[in-house]
Design a binder for these strands. Structure first.
Lengths: 346, 346
DNA sequence: TTGTAGGCGTTATCAA
DNA sequence: TTGATAACGCCTACAA
């Protein structure tokens, strides 16, 4: 007697209402409910109303896993970033989430820890879910990763950089040009012994360094002793150290282009500590233009980068592609903007 | 003729090898492959070897969606945080990812934007996937959210705070005690007109403020004009403004407890700008103890909080529970630590 | 516009 | 320890 309540007193099930329950209550076939939910325009207004009522009444919510299994496509966008705490990527990821809003698309995030091998592992892992799209950081994937992405069968956006040979779509800016612009600015301000300090030295940092070098070589002012880099992750405290290291090699250093704003802040504090006048005896230029640069004492020059915007636009590109809308250019250079402030006004 | 290659020339399929392909190659039943993959000890060594060979040969990878559908359980941990860019949560999320390592468990992250209603929406959304566990920030869920969590049917960890009535498990520290400790430190250092500046004023900020107030009232030194708060998100630039606002109300202000380190940094810059001597004319204490506090000029006192550790330990709690290991205490207070530095050495 | 039939890839149930 | 069978909940293909 206890076994015949409901049509099957058998074994499994989540207990939650299914599409069949909704269909029964609305007096239609399950497939009609499915259609009404995915694209209401496929179903007559009358049935749509009945279905909506039934959905609300039962508190029905589709099972994303069943949907993914049946359609061979998960409502998931895989996002791969090298770091979760680096403000650059945190801002970008925020843009991604914000642009997605209440879309049914989910984010599956992976932290590659700046390792191409880890990135490859994660791409494989993500691909096994047949995501709707993939957003990956940078353009320096391994050969294998690149091949995987090319045959992923879903939109792929590479973010943060600029280049002419993306896997599919690309949005970001040129770090080489960014490094060049910062360095040129320091040159124009009258500095001559311009150093570069950099931490982590991932591919983007390398390109900024290349831009710096290109600029100084053009001015015939390049000197390897002016450059101090480390693989250590970036931090404010590291900035001070790297400044000290550079000064030890080049006593007449009169400005530094810092790989990012944290380092620049560390340089500023170190200058205050050592009583080195900024900007007169030492010019400081950062990269990214975090809020604090504007209010530091003195205010610090930096290169403003469109991190948040990259996140939003990358999702727009994905959504356009998924909706079969044309993705105007599939390579977008968002550029950057130099914010000149007191720290480089000699 | 073209229709009879393969056993079904029908319609769908991902093209990837399935468990049936592995089973056929290994000469066993599909369910045996399933078992061998999930728990090798359930299968004889002999078959296990055959299966492993077949898996490698075919490059087989299980379909997570099919698995989730059949088992009514997704290998997903839902994580809800109020912000992705606030370093506090970014560090915690990093801890979560790091502790998970190469576990097959995936993170599904949701950004509540400090909104309990948005949190509720996301909890519903996550629950529809039947996650293996849920990690949520704070203890101030709506009634409905709390009910949803209590009946979630999976482990639930509330993080970042301390309290005695968690939904299930809880790990964090007491923000009230943190506020009290910072304020007591300033009192002991000899400051008397101690202000509080706070941004965002989420529940945790409120509790730190309550701790501050409790401490000053005990010393009979509380004065509402010493407190300046705003709902605006925190930033370095805001710190300077809030200091100025507070000074306008209380000219004899001689120290500030800042709700977080960004504000404290802004206060420091504002003091430099206005030539207010730190720590003699103004003591500064922050909260969280970011790296930059240690190297600021002068170094800034702060309360070190175990953000990263909270992330790791919360995952450990989840994994213990999922493995049916006993979760020693299900409420863990990780505490915090005052880092006294020059900015409060009058 | 709506419905029928059957499969997506895996695991739970029960039997051997 | 192993296997046959039937779900899991939804969607594609095709037909009406």
């Amino acid at each position: 007697m206890s076994k015949d309540r409901g049509r099957r007193a058998s074994r499994r099930g989540s207990g939650r209402p299914t599409i069949a329950d909704v269909a029964k209550l609305a007096g239609v076939a399950a497939i009609t409910v499915s259609r009404a939910l995915r694209d209401p325009s496929l179903v007559s207004a009358e049935l749509r109303a009945q279905i909506d009522t039934a959905v609300v009444q039962l508190g029905y919510a589709p099972d994303p896993n069943a949907r993914a299994l049946a359609s061979s496509r998960a409502d998931v966008i895989g996002v791969l970033v090298p770091s979760l705490t680096n403000i650059v990527f945190a801002d970008t990821v925020r843009g991604i989430y914000d642009e997605l809003g209440e879309s049914p698309l989910q984010i599956q995030m992976g932290n590659t820890h700046y390792s191409p091998r880890e990135e490859e592992r994660l791409v494989r892992m993500f691909l096994s879910q047949r995501p709707s799209a993939l957003i990956v950081s940078g353009i320096d994937q391994t050969q294998t990763t690149r091949k995987l992405l090319e045959t992923a069968g879903c939109p792929v956006v590479q973010i943060m950089e600029h280049g002419d040979d993306p896997v599919d779509m690309l949005i970001g800016f040129s770090h080489f040009e960014g490094g060049k612009m910062a360095t040129n600015h320091l040159l124009e301000a009258g500095y001559r012994r311009i150093g570069f300090i950099g931490a982590r030295m991932d591919p983007r940092s390398q390109r900024r360094l290349a831009g710096y070098r290109w600029s100084l070589e053009e001015a015939q002012l390049f000197d390897p002793r002016l450059v101090t880099t480390t693989l250590t992750p970036s931090s404010v405290s590291l900035g001070g150290q790297l400044l000290a290291d550079t000064l030890a090699k080049a006593h007449d250093l009169d400005a530094v282009f810092c790989n990012n704003d944290d380092l620049a802040m560390g340089v500023l504090f170190e200058c205050q500590r050592a009583a080195i006048a900024v900007p007169h005896r030492m010019g400081i230029c950062g990269f990214n233009d975090l809020d604090m640069m504007r209010v530091a004492y003195p205010p610090l020059t930096s290169v403003r980068t469109p991190r948040y915007e990259i996140g939003r636009r990358s999702v727009q590109m994905v959504l356009d592609r998924l909706a079969n809308r044309p993705v105007s250019p599939s390579i977008i250079d968002l550029g950057f903007e130099l914010q000149a402030r007191e720290s480089t006004m000699r």
